[in-house]
Amino acid sequence: MDVFMKGLSKAKEGVVAAAEKTKQGVAEAAGKTKEGVLYVGSKTKEGVVHGVATVAEKTKEQVTNVGGAVVTGVTAVAQKTVEGAGSIAAATGFVKKDQLGKNEEGAPQEGILEDMPVDPDNEAYEMPSEEGYQDYEPEA
């Protein structure tokens, strides 16, 4: 019985440690998101679009440190934060509304985080759909 109880105690310690790591990862992701939003706020009209992409990228980098179902929630929060940063930029006159959601080359930025393969159960990952990809044929 002692062996059984000791095993359960060790398992509990492992769960607590994993929860603490997840909590730490979420806190880091939130900190990076805040950094990115402050970065966007300090940019001029020309830099705002690039700044919004930076927020998304920093958040995406930190999301990889967070495991399990938390990833889905962090990704949703990050996307809403990026959308909010863009709205703030438009409201303050840093950028025109028609410039939001495009990178410096004018290509749409939507789907940055949505296409990231995420499995809350950590069982399997699927690649994003290939609808947006084109076949590449090298020139002879």
Rank of each mutant, 00 (worst) to 15 (best):
V49Y: 07
V52P: 01
A140H: 05
T81M: 08
T81V: 12
E28L: 05
G51P: 03
G68S: 11
D115S: 11
H50I: 12
T33I: 06
G41H: 02
E130W: 12
N122V: 12
G14F: 08
L8A: 02
V55Q: 00
M1S: 00
P117V: 14
I112Y: 07
G41N: 00
K80G: 05
K23M: 15
K80S: 01
T72N: 09
E123D: 02
K10P: 00
D135P: 13
V48E: 00
K45L: 13
P128C: 12
V40A: 06
E57F: 13
S9V: 02
A27W: 08
G93C: 07
G25H: 15
E104F: 11
V37L: 07
K10F: 00
G101T: 08
V55N: 01
G84P: 03
E110G: 04
M1Y: 00
K80Y: 06
G47I: 06
G51E: 01
E105K: 09
V82P: 05
F94N: 06
M116H: 07
V55K: 01
V48T: 03
T59I: 15
V66S: 01
K10Y: 07
T64D: 04
E61M: 04
K43V: 14
S87H: 13
E130C: 07
V82R: 08
E131H: 13
G106V: 12
V40M: 08
P108M: 07
G41D: 00
A140M: 08
V3T: 01
E28P: 01
G51H: 01
A124G: 08
E104C: 00
M5K: 07
D98N: 09
G25M: 15
A107M: 05
G106N: 08
K10V: 11
S9D: 08
D135K: 13
T44G: 09
K23W: 13
E46K: 13
K60T: 05
K60I: 10
A69S: 07
Y133C: 08
V63Y: 11
D115P: 13
G41P: 00
G36C: 04
G73R: 15
A78Q: 01
E130M: 06
Q62Y: 03
Q24E: 07
V118P: 05
V82I: 13
T81C: 15
K12E: 00
G36K: 13
M5L: 03
K23I: 03
K12A: 06
P120G: 07
E130A: 10
D2W: 04
K45W: 15
Y133L: 13
E139Q: 09
T44P: 01
E126P: 10
V82S: 06
G67R: 02
K6E: 04
S87N: 01
A91S: 04
A89Y: 14
G67D: 02
H50S: 10
I88Q: 04
Q99I: 14
A85Y: 14
Y136A: 11
L38H: 07
S9H: 04
T64L: 09
E104V: 04
V15F: 03
L8N: 00
K32A: 08
K97S: 08
P120K: 09
A27M: 11
Y125Q: 07
M116S: 08
A85E: 04
V3W: 04
V26K: 00
E46G: 04
T81E: 02
S129D: 05
E13C: 12
A17F: 14
G101A: 09
A90L: 12
E126I: 04
T22Y: 15
F4M: 06
E110K: 02
E61P: 04
V74P: 02
D115E: 10
K102T: 07
D119F: 08
E123A: 06
A27D: 03
P138I: 02
T75A: 12
G73F: 15
